[in-house]
Design a protein around this nucleic acid. Structure first.
Length: 1006
RNA sequence: GGGCGAUUAGCUCAGCGGUAGAGCACUUCAUUGACAUUGAAGGGGUCACAAGUUCGAUCCUUGUAUCGCCCA
């Protein structure tokens, strides 16, 4: 079969991929040797809404290289693919689509109908990334494609929740969480992006209760009084005035002398209707920074994470001011009533509990329903109008009518950058909000995850990743796992009213009090029956039912007409954080909790290849959860890589317009070129800057390989029948290339063994382009074109074999072009399942051939260099002379005379006693070689050339001699280093003397 | 503020105790022999700076400067 002149990636890639799939090449265990060890990679599941971007392309190229390599080696392989349901992202996409197509909104259609729409969307347009991965050549076992909302996976997720709940690793509580007002759900702290944003710091006066005053004294570092005045207020600085309505206290540092006299007193929140102003205590806490602002801070436990801690420590009530859209609350009793109760609490005359505080709305009527940012403006204006803003004096220079300076007194507002939290999906400002949420008690499960890495059971690469991992896990916070969404795994908890202790009465206060956690509704029912007592126990007086409207959440206590009691339990409407289910990806996709064959064979998995940006989101959580659930590590090695950036190192983003679409790249350059580029970029710890020039270069490499194929085809090497073994050879040329291939195979394996994809790629690039094409291929020409039939036959067979080895070794990185070339002759197996070679350099390197060919290559290069610099016309054949040629050189010459003559354009070699005048000298070992150029030599050019070479040599010699002359070097350096240095020196000295001779001879001419 | 990292050729990056490599770009030459998506030859670097360890430092240690990322 004759090869096409060019490789047509566009048509070949889909054809080859189909052939692999049709033959089941990627199925788990395909091509495994009997009794093979397993090798498994879990794909980092892309969002079901995802489209392939450069990061995926990079990540999956590396995984595919490992898979294909291991599969050829005969491991029992599994590359487990699948997608993630991606709670927020998917819900967002479907909601947007409903809006675009004028369908009822999510709220209008209700939970069940909406979920149906999501599933519809998923069937129609979800998972398009899967087909895009195929275009990249990803050799996943698609028969096993998983989805976090399908098959056994949801059951596994629910089971884990229930087990962790029963072990006390999951709890529910009212905590301050990051609230996304756009999606109206809690999110975890990892889903918050803190961005420095221009902001303001306002300074307000909180008047002391009852008009009390104190002497406010400020001192400098030396204790000298710089300010002393009577004040009837305490000055507070805040970036969030709208939260003042929920203040529970003002805090100062215990060592702050300025305020010591008023600690314990009450002050007034200077906002809201004057007759209902609340008084709050001035307390001490370690949190305020004396040097920041006035040193006094307002404590708003329900709206700030630092304040929350202070409020918890100090037993200060936390008043929630906002609704789920982060607008000022509009529910509850009139402000006057609420404020009175709050005042009673502050005075200590009213007891309070969490539920009571949560129900209170301390937003004055005039603010109710207002957007939080509008409310901020209004608070500032109201306080300023009342004269309670701290004022400052500014001077407008030369602005007066007569050019004089004007002094103005204005409110003191600092313009300063503040760290503003944004939702990573919604991009709106996150509001800390006090809500009931489910948490994983990470403190209890973090230990084994840390130990597994510390003791080396799991290795993270690059090593710096381990440090980052420790740092995060050592300081881990509880993980908020409930989301107020519909798309996801609904929390398997049903609520009913709590029993009053020791009594059979039920205490229903409108909030869920008793949780029943079970995998199914039936399970929850039976837990509830057990708890409340069954109907028969109560003489038929009590009936336990499921409430069907989960959005109403909670169990309801009813009494029916006959006096019997009906208790309803209702399911928690919330769903689990997507990362909770992703955290179970390894066991979940392998069929857990069933003891499946796949689980036994492939778990724990081998390598995890993923982006360092999800080390915390995913890797750490998989570690914690797998260890918590099945007490085993999920994988042995984690390979972390960076973000793919553009050629200038900029993050690719739509708004910058620098996004490179991998599918466009595949269309233009072919998947192999993209894959090779990815491999070449993948140095451990390096930045990933993608330059299309580089892709173009590797596309050229694909062409180079193809052309080496067409050369072979042209010379008949594809007529040589396929053979698995290494061919027997006699010609030095063929002996030599076998050794070179063995060295390359070892280098590639060593590189892939240590995940140095870039080393593997550059080894192969350099071998194929330089050694194979520029040298070996060229050197076969005289033989294949020559008269020695036996030599030609041997060389044809060797070329065929050697080229096959190139295809095999390149296949993991460039599967398409290699499979296509492989298929150009009859083969026992497709390349994808061809055995990876195990020959070694020790087996195949022929020392003599190696030395001879190296010398030959050096000789050709030296002659070409001299010719080019001496301006000897390229086509001319010139004579070569030598003085004192040694045995090694003679042997090498004899073996490879034809090659040197052909490729360096030499007509003859003559041994002479002395160099003829006007000879261009060659820096080659084994004798003083020269090209006689009498008459045509450019004396000046030759002198310059020799001097330059001598200069370089002198520098090198200086270093070598310096070392050897240093007695300490001889004492301390290892023997082989000394030997090597000595040998090197001798060689260089010999070269130098020959060149010096040449220089003096040429000088005679000039 | 805490943590992690980077600084090597014009550009993008490898390397790593024995004074430096690749690709691209650049210069010169080559055009019927697998390949112009090419071939041949060549220029270009006190490896950020300073001190230390060492026989020897681009590499190890410490410090400085600049830049990046993550977490507050």
């Amino acid at each position: 079969m004759a090869l096409e002149k060019k490789f047509d990636a566009t048509t070949a890639e889909p054809r080859l991929y189909q052939a692999w799939e049709a033959a089941g090449c990627f199925v788990a265990g395909a091509n495994a040797k009997p009794e093979a060890s397993s090798y498994c990679i879990m794909i980092p599941p892309p969002n079901v809404t995802g489209v392939l971007h450069m990061g995926h392309a990079f990540n999956n190229t590396l995984q595919d290289i490992m898979m294909r390599w291991k599969r050829m080696q005969g491991f029992d392989t599994l590359w487990q693919p699948g997608t993630d349901h991606a709670g927020i992202a998917t819900q967002m996409v479907v909601e947007r689509k409903l809006a675009e197509t004028q369908q009822p909104s999510r709220a209008e259609m209700g939970r069940d109908a909406f979920l149906e729409k999501v599933w519809e969307w998923k069937e129609e347009s979800g998972g398009q990334i899967i087909n895009q991965l195929k275009r990249l050549g990803a050799s996943c076992d698609w028969d096993r494609e998983a989805f976090t909302m399908s098959g056994n996976f949801p059951d596994a997720v629910i089971k884990v929740f229930v087990e962790m709940y029963n072990k006390g690793l999951i709890y529910r509580g009212k905590r301050l969480v990051n609230w996304d007002p756009h999606f109206e759900t809690a999110i975890s702290d990892l889903e918050v992006e803190n961005v420095e944003t221009p902001g303001h710091m306002w300074h307000f006066k909180y008047p002391l209760a009852g008009g009390a005053t104190y002497t406010y004294i400020e001192k400098d570092e030396d204790g000298n009084v710089t300010l002393s005045e009577e004040r009837d207020y305490i000055s507070i600085a805040t970036t969030r005035p709208e939260t003042m309505l929920g203040d529970g206290a003002v805090a100062v540092h215990p060592s702050d002398e300025r305020y010591a006299s008023i600690v314990g007193k009450l002050c007034e929140i200077p906002v809201g209707p004057k007759e209902f102003r609340r008084l709050i205590p001035i307390i001490t806490d370690e949190y305020p920074d004396k040097d920041f602002g006035s040193g006094a801070v307002k404590i708003t436990g329900a709206h700030d994470f630092n304040d929350y801690q202070v409020a918890k420590r100090g037993g200060i009530p936390m008043f929630n001011l906002m609704d789920t859209k982060a607008a000022m609350r509009a529910d509850g009793k009139p402000y006057a009533e609420e404020a009175a109760i709050a005042q009673a609490i502050a005075n200590g005359t009213q007891e309070f509990d969490e539920a009571m505080i949560a129900a209170m709305n301390l937003v004055p009527e005039e603010y109710r329903g207002m957007d939080r940012f509008e409310a901020r403006k209004k608070v500032v204006n109201d306080i300023t109008a009342e004269g309670l803003a701290v004022m400052t004096t500014v001077v407008d220079f030369n602005e007066g009518d007569d050019g004089e300076n004007i002094q103005r007194i204005i409110p003191y507002v600092e313009n300063k950058p503040i760290m503003q939290p944004f939702g990573d999906r919604s991009k709106v400002v996150i509001e800390p909000l006090l809500t009931d949420q489910w948490f994983v008690d990470t403190d209890k499960i973090v230990g084994p995850a840390l130990d597994a890495v510390r003791n080396g059971d799991v290795k993270i690469m690059p090593e710096s990743g381990e440090k980052v991992y420790y740092n995060w896990l050592d300081n881990i916070e509880p993980w908020c796992i409930s989301r107020q969404l519909w798309w996801g795994h609904q929390i398997p908890v049903w609520y009913g009213p709590e029993k009053i202790s020791g009594d059979e009465n039920l205490d229903y206060k409108g909030v869920p009090l008793r949780a029943f956690c079970a995998p199914t509704a039936e399970g929850a029912l039976s837990l509830a029956r057990e708890y409340y007592g069954s109907e028969t126990d109560k003489g038929g007086a009590r009936l336990i039912e499921l409430h069907d409207d989960t959005s109403k959440l909670y169990g309801i206590q009813n009494s029916s007409a006959d006096g019997s009691q009906i208790i309803r339990i209702g399911r928690d409407p919330d769903v689990l954080d997507t990362w909770f289910s992703s955290g179970l990806w390894p066991i979940g996709t392998l069929g857990w909790p069933e003891e499946t064959d796949a689980l036994k064979r492939y778990f724990p998995t081998s390598d995890l290849i993923t982006g360092q940006d999800i080390l915390f989101f995913w890797v750490a959580r998989m570690m914690m959860m797998q260890l918590a659930v099945v007490d085993e590590i999920p994988f042995k090695t984690v390979y972390l890589h960076g973000l793919v950036r553009d050629a200038n190192g900029k993050k690719m983003s739509k708004s910058t317009g620098n996004v490179i679409d991998p599918l466009d790249i595949i269309d233009e350059y072919g998947a192999d070129a993209l894959r090779f580029t990815n491999a070449a970029m993948a140095s451990l710890g390096g930045a990933l800057k993608l330059d299309t020039k580089r892709i173009e270069g590797y596309r050229n490499f694909v062409t180079k390989l193809w052309n080496a194929g067409t050369y072979g085809d042209f010379k008949g090497t594809f007529d040589v029948p396929h053979a698995d073994g290494v061919p027997e050879t006699n010609l030095p040329l063929n002996n030599w290339i076998k050794g070179e291939i063995a060295k390359t195979r070892e280098a590639v394996d060593a590189a892939l063994d240590t995940y140095r994809f870039n080393d593997a790629a550059s080894t192969l690039y350099s071998f194929v382009w330089n050694t194979f094409c520029s040298q070996y291929l060229e050197f076969t020409k005289p033989v294949l074109d020559g008269d020695d039939a036996a030599a030609a036959t041997e060389t044809k067979a060797t070329y065929a074999w050697a080229f096959d080895q190139c295809l095999i070794l390149l296949h993991p990185i460039m599967p398409f072009v290699t499979e296509e070339l492989w298929g150009a002759k009859e083969r026992p197996k497709m390349l994808v399942h061809t055995d990876w070679p195990t020959y070694t350099a020790a087996d195949l390197v022929d020392a003599q051939a190696d030395a001879d060919l190296s010398w030959t290559v050096a000789m050709i290069e030296a002659i070409r260099s001299a010719r080019a610099q001496m301006n000897v016309p390229g086509g001319d054949f010139v004579p070569l002379v030598v003085v004192g040629m040694d045995a090694a050189a003679t042997s090498a010459w004899d073996q490879n005379e034809a090659l040197i003559k052909r490729f360096a354009r030499i007509e003859s070699l003559t041994a002479v006693d002395t160099m003829p005048k006007g000879t261009a000298a060659l820096a080659v070992s084994g004798g003083a070689f020269g090209i006689p150029l009498d008459g045509i030599i450019d004396v000046a050019a030759e002198k310059a050339r020799l001097e330059k070479t001598l200069g370089k040599l002198a520098k090198e010699l200086g270093g070598l001699r310096g070392r050897l002359n240093n007695p300490k070097f001889a004492d301390s350096a290892p023997a082989e280093v000394i030997e090597e240095t000595k040998a090197n020196l001798a060689l260089r000295e010999d070269e130098e003397s020959k060149l010096k001779d040449a220089l003096s001879r040429i000088s005679e001419l000039g």
